[in-house]
Design a protein around this nucleic acid. Structure first.
Length: 474
RNA sequence: GGCCUGGUGGCAGAGUGGUUAUGCAGAGGACUGCAAAUCCUUGUAUGCCGGUUCGAUUCCGACCCAGGCCUCCA
């Protein structure tokens, strides 16, 4: 099946043609582990996961690299900002190494709760310092660098003719230091640090020796160094959040193409932001933000958030609201209920191969066409409604849908059934029996009172054709 | 200021040159002593102004509005 993806480089949807037949090298910029990931960050990782699952369902052998940025970087090249890692460490009263480990673990917990397939490699930036130094050395040999005294080694973007090509247009109209004080020692406003020197009077928690003295790498080098090491000089797909395209990814290209030749990467994918209802992006830097734990504490299944994300398209901003999350929650639960009913209805009929193939194709085509997950979910609704498809075929299709979208419809449906089959304790059963008696005597007041008591004890009583049924409340 | 996105019902959001998906919420009904669940039915939308066209929500242009990047952030 043809895979089509919107390539930021061309600003067009292109047919996907891998560099090597049947194989995909995929690099996604990972988290900086100085704080919890907020749910906006997680939207991007969900989208990456769908991309990967879709490629796998299309029989590609995917090698996925996602870095863990555990090196602190200054908040600006002007050397005036704070180091996020060191700041985070001070906030939590821990060493930078401790907070890196702590927030990496927290991140992976969310990752697993969202049922995201783990990357093939998750390199830590601090494990690839030598590779980053080697990369800077090569750029130095090729004449792309210059030194600013007591500051660092910088990349001269005027030496790279294609600078800025990823995001198109000219960068010349950019206001140098539009939002930050401009480092006047730089030759060009777009120049960036490759290696920063540690301050002479200060011992940093994270610093390394290098041919240029004690210091630490600039943050754009890690992705280049690690991707070259783990995916080779050229690879197929590079993904990131929409904020990364203009600076980080243009800088990555500027660092890599002089060394490996152009084009370095074939397809660039960028995920748009989750925004709040006033339209502003969620940001870790702003202090207040929602993480997965905040959602869990309010009783939301992480899968509900994933479902909400998949209802939208990754290139469009998605507005977060509790109302929207509730809608997603109801919608998700309704599907689970219907799938649970399918399991009950499964009468051991055979899977109808023709019908299966038809739906399989429709759903996989949607996701393969630039990740139209919302369209795929419409087909899921239509499949559930379609009475001409037997239960066995539907269930087989749900196995495929769960592989493709990772929404765990079947697992949740089975869990729901298990909860429904749980037998009520004796005292609850007694109350239920009393209520039946009351009903027979048409003593509605007593019956309602008894239902109240059962309700308070955490059970629901539901009258059915076959009598009263007790179901534990979730 | 430069570059880039986007504006669709109450909410979230697809798609389409010719009756605007889907979900959630709402309304009505069936069922029920009442509920819950379920099922059936159902109303409501393409920012504004021009152009192209037999016909524009879709294509083109201007405008208005919102957002992103130009410091680190997905």
């Amino acid at each position: 099946m043809t895979v089509r993806l919107f390539n930021t480089m061309s600003r067009k949807i292109e047919d996907f043609q891998p560099l090597a037949a049947g194989k995909v090298g995929f690099y996604s910029c990972g988290p900086t582990v100085y704080h919890y990931a907020h749910i906006g960050n997680l939207r991007y990782f969900i989208q990456n996961d769908i991309l990967k699952r879709m490629l796998i369902e299309n029989d590609y052998d995917v090698t996925h690299v996602m870095n863990i940025t555990d090196v602190g970087h200054l908040t600006s090249d002007a050397d005036s900002g704070e180091d996020k890692m060191e700041k985070g460490a001070a906030r939590d009263n821990k060493s930078v190494w401790e907070i890196a480990r702590f927030y990496t673990d927290e991140f992976l917990k969310d990752f697993d709760d969202l049922n995201l397939v783990r990357p093939t490699f998750m390199p830590k930036a601090t494990d690839y310092i030598q590779e980053q130094i080697d990369l800077v050395k090569k750029l130095e040999e090729l004449g792309y660098t210059y030194t600013i005294e007591e500051d660092g080694i910088y990349y001269d973007t005027s030496k790279f003719p294609g600078y800025g090509k990823l995001t198109g247009g000219s960068l010349s109209g950019n206001r140098a230091g539009a939002r930050v004080e401009f480092n006047s020692s730089k030759r060009n406003p777009t120049d960036f640090a490759l290696w920063k020197f540690s301050p002479k009077d200060e011992k940093r928690q994270m610093e390394w020796d290098s041919p240029w003295g004690i210091g630490f790498p600039g943050w754009h080098t890690e992705c280049c160094a690690m991707s070259m090491k783990l995916l080779g000089n050229h690879f197929d797909i590079h993904a990131g959040g929409e904020d990364l395209s203009r600076v980080h990814h243009n800088n990555e290209i500027a660092q890599s193409e002089p060394i490996v030749g152009a084009p370095w990467v074939k397809y660039w994918l960028h995920t748009s932001f989750l925004v709040d209802k006033s339209g502003e992006k969620m940001s870790k830097s702003n202090g207040e933000f929602l993480n997965m734990d905040a959602l869990r504490k309010r009783g939301y299944d992480p899968m509900v958030y994933k479902y909400m994300v998949l209802l939208s398209h990754f290139q469009a901003q998605l507005a977060f609201s509790w109302e929207g999350l509730d809608a997603a929650s109801n919608g998700y639960k309704n599907i689970i209920k219907k799938v649970a009913a399918l399991i009950d209805a499964d009468d051991n009929t055979n899977v109808d191969k023709t019908i299966y193939d038809d739906w399989h194709k429709k759903i996989l085509s949607s996701v393969s066409d630039n990740l139209k997950t919302a369209e795929a979910l419409v087909y899921v609704q239509e499949l559930l409604k379609d009475q001409s498809v037997n239960s066995a075929t539907k269930l087989a299709l749900f196995e495929f849908i769960d592989r493709l979208l990772g929404l765990q419809f079947l697992a949740r449906a089975k869990k729901l059934k298990a909860a429904e089959e749980e037998v009520a304790p004796q005292e609850i059963q007694k109350l239920a029996n009393k209520r039946i008696e009351a009903k027979k005597e048409k003593n509605w007041a007593l019956a309602d009172e008894l239902r109240n008591q059962i309700d308070q004890a955490g059970w629901s009583v539901i009258d059915t054709k076959d009598g009263a049924k007790l179901v534990k409340k979730s």
